[in-house]
Simulated assay, not measured.
Amino acid sequence: MSTHVIPHTSLFASLLGPAFDALPAPLRILHLRDGRALWRGEVEVIRGRSLLSRFCAWATRLPPAGTGPIEVEIIAAQGREQWTRHVAGHAMRSRLWAGDGLLNERLGLVDFRFRLASLDHDIVWTVAGVRVFGLLPLPVAWFSQVRAREFADGERYRFEVVAALPLAGPLVHYRGWLEVA
């Protein structure tokens, strides 16, 4: 009996399917490899000011406001990824995995489920579900103003994340660029 080894497909490639191959090189490079990768760049972080906004940012370990360097370590293996973003002495960690055709991301106390799409050569993240403590579901409609976009600017990987909630208002808006360290 012969054993066939099935080549591993990266998390984002498996979720985006054939659209992954049409993405610009900086996006494919960041999302394609297994192992450990270190990326460095610049980020601008704008944080919400309301008490509820600050609590939500704490619960998801969002970075502090400011402009400056960012370092992102990505450890990928067997269709799972761990991202650690270092901004101004703050580490924002998340774990990512696939489930039911969606990207799952655990950020602090909150589990997000995102629908990924390739739109005009960008990767667009749209919230499809949210749970607190992995158990308590929250209405998806609350998260209609939470979105992320990855795109290329020449040979540079770029990102933008915007999050706002009803009652809390703006939580965070961060954007920047990364290059392989």
Score class of each variant (00 low, 15 high):
residue 3 T to Q: 08
residue 6 I to Y: 04
residue 6 I to D: 09
residue 13 A to E: 10
residue 19 A to R: 13
residue 21 D to A: 15
residue 22 A to L: 06
residue 23 L to H: 02
residue 25 A to N: 07
residue 26 P to E: 07
residue 27 L to H: 06
residue 27 L to D: 05
residue 28 R to F: 09
residue 28 R to N: 07
residue 30 L to V: 15
residue 34 D to F: 02
residue 35 G to I: 07
residue 41 G to C: 09
residue 45 V to R: 08
residue 45 V to N: 12
residue 47 R to P: 07
residue 48 G to Q: 04
residue 49 R to D: 14
residue 50 S to G: 07
residue 50 S to R: 06
residue 55 F to A: 14
residue 63 P to C: 10
residue 64 P to D: 11
residue 67 T to Y: 12
residue 70 I to L: 15
residue 78 Q to G: 12
residue 79 G to M: 00
residue 79 G to D: 03
residue 82 Q to H: 11
residue 86 H to N: 14
residue 86 H to D: 14
residue 89 G to M: 10
residue 90 H to R: 13
residue 91 A to L: 09
residue 95 R to N: 06
residue 96 L to N: 10
residue 99 G to V: 05
residue 101 G to K: 10
residue 102 L to K: 13
residue 103 L to C: 07
residue 103 L to G: 00
residue 104 N to H: 15
residue 106 R to K: 11
residue 108 G to Q: 04
residue 108 G to W: 04
residue 108 G to T: 06
residue 108 G to C: 07
residue 112 F to W: 12
residue 113 R to V: 00
residue 116 L to M: 11
residue 117 A to V: 11
residue 117 A to Q: 15
residue 122 D to K: 10
residue 131 R to P: 02
residue 135 L to V: 11
residue 141 A to H: 09
residue 142 W to N: 14
residue 143 F to H: 07
residue 143 F to Q: 08
residue 144 S to P: 01
residue 147 R to I: 07
residue 147 R to Q: 13
residue 151 F to N: 04
residue 151 F to E: 00
residue 152 A to K: 06
residue 155 E to M: 00
residue 157 Y to M: 08
residue 158 R to K: 12
residue 161 V to A: 03
residue 162 V to M: 02
residue 164 A to K: 02
residue 164 A to E: 07
residue 167 L to H: 09
residue 169 G to D: 04
residue 171 L to C: 05
residue 174 Y to H: 13
residue 175 R to K: 14
residue 177 W to P: 00
